[in-house]
């Protein structure tokens, strides 16, 4: 079976600066993978390349064996690190939007999660607090039956209670054959849910290992290893 995400000599330059340089990785299915690294390490660039929002300067990125395009977008559910929803819309309108465009979107699941969080479907997105808006965004992304979920800083801007809800939502809403790629700085919060981690530094791969390997070989938590590798 083809890897769900594969980078072959992937390079991305902004002007004369390399955001990613000759990256080679392959992500297997059915795992929750942490994409970790300090600011400017190339995490968001890699995620944008996987979603076809950026074009590589060199090399290739493949999703299920294909370059990012219409077919890969059907199987990738992406949560950007910013608000990406039109604020003029209401919650039910954005749900209808997702339902229209994504065949694998479950309106029932999304409505259930909104109910559980007591979010009014008639509320305008512009009237929601930052935390609630992030929850709505996550609900939309996790209500899809995707093969690859790419979550860029899903817990960065919310309080600890909301973080727990978000992690719970991620864990309970993906099927076991799907892969979840999570980029975050808050390693200690998500460490327990990760199966595998990728460390990026200055656009290059530093570590690509399972959490079990890190614990047995390095005898450290992922958080402790991260602090050691990226010590300032």
């Amino acid at each position: 079976m083809k890897p769900i995400l594969e980078c072959r000599g992937l390079t991305k330059k902004y002007g004369s600066t390399f955001a990613l340089y000759n990256l080679n990785i392959a992500l297997e299915r059915g795992q929750i993978i942490g994409l970790l690294g300090p600011n400017g390490s190339g995490k968001t660039t890699l995620i944008k390349l996987a979603n076809g929002l950026l074009r590589p300067s060199g090399g290739q990125i493949l999703i299920n064996g294909s370059e990012p395009g219409v077919e890969t977008k059907k199987i990738v559910s992406y949560l950007p690190d910013r608000n990406y929803l039109g604020k003029h819309m209401r919650v039910d309108e954005i749900m209808a939007y997702y339902n229209t465009f994504y065949d694998n979107f479950s309106l029932e699941r999304a409505s259930g999660m909104l109910d559980a969080l007591s979010i009014d479907p008639r509320a305008r997105l512009s009237s929601l607090s930052k935390g609630t808006l992030e929850k709505v965004q996550l609900i939309l992304v996790m209500s899809r039956e995707a093969d690859l979920y790419i979550l860029d800083e899903p817990i960065g801007g919310v309080d600890p209670a909301a973080r727990d809800y978000i992690l719970h939502t991620i864990l309970t809403n993906y099927n076991e054959n799907a892969t979840v790629l999570i980029s975050t700085h808050l390693i200690s919060d998500i460490e327990n849910v990760l199966d595998h981690v990728i460390f990026l530094k200055s656009g290059q791969l530093v570590l690509n290992a399972s959490v079990d390997e890190i614990r047995t070989q390095h005898r450290k938590s992922v958080d402790a290893l991260f602090r050691e590798v990226f010590k300032c």
């Binding site: 979603n51 076809g52 929002l53 219409v70 077919e71 977008k73 059907k74 990738v76 992406y78 950007p80 910013r82 990406y84 929803l85 039109g86 465009f101 994504y102």
Partner: peptide
């Protein structure tokens, strides 16, 4: 909004 538009199939 482009983050949503460009990731539609």
């Amino acid at each position: 909004e482009g983050y949503l538009s460009w990731t539609l199939p």
